[in-house]
Nucleic acid binder design. Sequence first.
DNA 1: GCTGCATGATGAA
DNA 2: TCATCCTGCAGCA
Length: 275
Amino acid sequence: MPEGHVIHRYARSHRAALGGHRIAASSPQGRFAVGAALIDGRRLTSVDAHGKHLFYRWEGAETLHVHLGLYGRFRIHRSDPPPPTPATRLVLSTDEVVVYLSGPTICEIIDPAAEEALRARLGPDPLVPKRRTGLDPAEAFATNLSRRSIPIGAALLDQRVIAGLGNIYRAEALFLTGIDPHLPAQEVDQEHALDLWRTSVTLLRRGVRSGRIVTVEPLDVGAKRRSDLGPTERLYVYKRYGEPCRRCGTAVMRADMANRMLWWCGACQPAGAGS
DNA sequence: GCTGCATGATGAA
DNA sequence: TCATCCTGCAGCA
């Protein structure tokens, strides 16, 4: 279930478990055997994430770049690890911890130029602190929007515009900011663009903290605390086609946008809202 | 047990 | 716009 918050959680947990250690690396599946050999026995110096991309740096080797795509996942075992399945692309282990990676879209060793090119085409990540990026990320996001004629609902999935949002966050962020998903990105006004950025920061940070995506304000479902919400109460519109909007009761709408299904409330996000 | 879908992204047509 | 990569699992029989 990898949207940006999951990737940053992996970065944090791998940094804590593997950082500073010499790592044994292998590829039971075989597809990454050559790459694993390049980092096998090296010391891992840092792990960081940008959007949905993970970067692992080593002493004496180039960077390991991982992108989970839709299916990829890590499993971490601190004791009695089960043997890796034949599909395990990569194993990273110390004496105490074993990390298994399966199903990634990308698992590769990249040189500094390739990494630079990759990072250059990623938009600002709401989870990356401002000081590390130089220019103000909220402004960069607003500028990116102003240069796109595609609907805002498509722009939020474009990782060059903003890095880290996936299909759930796009639907929920647009609902929370009351923006019509069909509005061309360049027509989103400054106020709504900044609101979208701030909302993304809030939602993603909460996701990193809790490990799951919860966007609902507790009062909207008659609960006291966010942690009390049941599994079917955590989102406003995602996958809720035809069900009543939690704010106004209007049936939630649904349409394909940018190859992915999008849900929204036609009353809380009326045509043209956000401009 | 089987089918089809999924929180992603790319490359061909 | 579509097909494809690749894995896990919900939903159904």
